[in-house]
């Protein structure tokens, strides 16, 4: 089968002028590759929100929430064009082969609400919450104002995507015991999935120096540590406070690797009222 090609050369142009000139790097290859990969990832993630929209309709979510999901899909497509503009500003071509696209699971074996919430936990509470932390870290290192502005827009959208999931779960809380159990089983699968996905996209290097960091090529090692900390000290406890236990041996292993204090990963209580947080210091 012929690979599909994503060509955003023309679509990126309107964002190029807003971006302004970027500093020239001795070797822009890593930066071009980084932003091209983001272009692809953002583009294909639009289909995830598209799928969530269908599930939200089936589950009877409000029209406002359905509209938000449709907006999120459009935002991901815009992010792709914005990332494409950065590729071009760095002297590269905003063209890439699309990877194989796994279908977004419909979870037909459970009722429509649980099916939706499974994907919400994975997408909003895990992936997008991690994205908020990673992008926020990056914005603090970005140099050129135009690039900072672009990344700020993307961060703002990612915040909205993550908030969607957390606020929906809070609206529905307390969840019926059966739903809590079902989501706990799934959240463990989703936790391990996001860990493997992120580690695969965060190369274990210490960056390519300050010049590269100012155009968005940060230390992958630092990003991995932030991933571990976010999952262990924000996501897992946040879900636990809603009755969803997403902790797994893989998360503990990640904590160990990045020296997140063990207590954080071993929370024995399950309710917000008596949730114990280990000190991070």
């Amino acid at each position: 089968m012929t690979a599909l090609v994503l060509d955003l050369q023309s679509a990126a142009r309107p964002f190029l002028s807003e971006l302004g000139e970027l500093p020239s790097l001795a070797d822009p290859t890593a930066a071009q590759r980084t932003w091209r990969a983001r272009m692809v990832n953002e583009h294909v993630s639009a289909r995830v929100f598209g799928a969530l929209l269908g599930q939200a309709m089936a589950a009877g979510l409000s029209a406002q929430r359905q509209t938000q999901l449709a907006d999120f899909a459009c935002e991901e497509l815009r992010h792709a064009r914005q990332c494409a503009a950065v590729v071009q500003a760095l002297g590269g071509a905003a063209v890439a082969e699309l990877p194989n696209l796994p279908a977004v699971p419909q979870h037909a074996e459970v009722d429509p609400l649980q099916a939706l919430l499974r994907n919400i936990v994975s997408v909003c509470c895990l992936s997008e919450t991690v994205a908020v932390a990673l992008i926020r870290a990056e914005t603090l290192q970005i140099g050129p104002p135009g690039l900072r502005s672009l990344l700020d827009q993307i961060l703002a959208d990612e915040v909205g995507h993550a908030q969607f999931g957390w606020s929906l779960l809070r609206e529905l809380a307390p969840l019926p015991a059966a739903l809590e159990q079902g989501l706990t089983s799934y959240a463990k699968v989703a936790m391990d999935h996001v860990i493997e996905h992120e580690l695969a996209h965060l190369p274990d290097h210490r960056g390519f120096g300050p010049a590269a960091a100012q155009v968005g090529v940060c230390s992958g090692r630092a990003a991995r540590a932030l991933l571990a900390d976010t999952l262990a000290t924000v996501v897992a406890p946040g879900l636990l406070s809603l009755g969803i236990d997403a902790r797994t041996p893989r998360l503990s292993q990640l904590c160990e690797e990045f020296a997140v204090p063990a207590g954080v990963c071993v929370i024995h209580t399950a309710k917000a009222s008596d949730l114990q947080w280990a000190k991070l210091a």
Binding site: C125, T129, V130, V132, A133, L134, R136, A137, L140, Q141, V159, A162, Q163, W166, S167, R170, A222, A225, L226, D229, T230, T233, V234, V235, P237, G238, S241, A272, L275, Q276, W277, A278, K279, L280, A281
Partner: peptide, 29 residues
């Protein structure tokens, strides 16, 4: 950078529960 990024995530995820000890720990850090 690490701590500020972590707080952004906590703000989003733990949002409405400003009485949460979690948030206080993150701030304390």
């Amino acid at each position: 950078i690490h701590l500020r990024a972590l707080r952004a995530a906590a703000a989003v995820a733990l949002g409405a529960a400003c009485s949460s000890t979690a948030g206080q720990n993150v701030v304390a850090v």
